[in-house]
Amino acid sequence: MSDGQRADARRNYERILAVAVDEVAEHGVNASLEQIARVAGVGSATVRRHFPSRRALLEAVSHKRIEDLSDRARELAGTGESRSVLLEWLNEVVDYSATARGLAAVLVPDSAEVEPAHVNGCAATLEDAASPLLQNAKRDGTVSSEVMLADLLALIAGIAMATEHYPDPAAQAHHLFRLAAAGLGPQH
């Protein structure tokens, strides 16, 4: 394959992936592969050459969105008030989770024999990137020392699953997350 053909294949891959991210956000995991191909301006065969299965495409979509969230955590580290910065990033995770409609369930390994360490590479990537945000908030005393990122991500995943069938899943997910972040006591 010549350099021109490789560059064209990379552009096709990136274009397909960008369209797939939008389509999955809008239509969930059952987004039409034919629609993705049409919007990306390629044939169905090109989509299947880059992504041999729906699962492969969904994994790539998830990976891209996790990379973006990780980059955002690194951008926010050391800026602003530590609790506010952590909550800003967590709200972006809520946005992602609320628009990923059904993605988590599809990405669960097919085999129950998979090691738990391999099951959630996405969570590990997010934890690595966002750890400084949580550590800063703990250091400043604005978040309990008992709080773990894994707990926060599990909470958000649960909220996303509980709200995915609401008419406006993102609004409901944000409402529930605000309740969880504020606690049940009156706000002063």
Rank of each mutant, 00 (worst) to 15 (best):
V47Y: 07
L90G: 02
A150I: 10
R101L: 06
F51C: 04
E23R: 09
V85F: 01
S97C: 08
L133T: 11
H118Y: 13
D22P: 12
A171I: 08
I156K: 02
R101A: 11
A60G: 02
K64T: 04
L153A: 02
A124D: 00
R83N: 03
R10H: 11
P167N: 04
A173C: 13
G41F: 01
V147E: 10
E26L: 15
R11F: 13
R11C: 07
V108P: 03
G141Y: 09
I66M: 02
Q172R: 15
E26Q: 13
L179H: 09
E59V: 11
V147H: 01
G185I: 07
A98M: 06
L33E: 11
G4F: 09
P52L: 12
S32R: 06
L17T: 02
V114T: 14
A45P: 05
S53R: 04
T163M: 00
Y96E: 13
P132F: 01
R55C: 07
L86F: 01
P52N: 08
A20H: 09
G4A: 14
R178T: 13
A157I: 08
D110T: 09
L76A: 06
V85W: 02
E92D: 11
S111M: 07
S82G: 02
E75W: 08
S53V: 07
S145Y: 00
T79C: 01
E113G: 13
R55S: 03
V61C: 06
D168L: 12
L86T: 03
V21K: 10
G185Y: 01
G28Y: 15
L103C: 00
F51I: 05
A98W: 07
E23G: 14
A180M: 03
G102E: 06
R54N: 09
F177Q: 07
G158K: 01
E92C: 09
T79F: 08
L87K: 05
N136W: 12
P132N: 14
E88Y: 15
H63Y: 06
L176R: 08
R178E: 15
P132H: 08
Y96M: 12
R65S: 00
E26F: 11
P116T: 08
E88G: 12
T46A: 12
E75K: 04
A157K: 10
D128W: 04
S44A: 14
D8W: 14
N12D: 04
S2A: 05
V42W: 00
L184R: 13
S2P: 07
V21M: 13
V29A: 13
A100F: 06
G41P: 04
V42K: 05
F51A: 12
V108F: 10
S62F: 00
A56E: 00
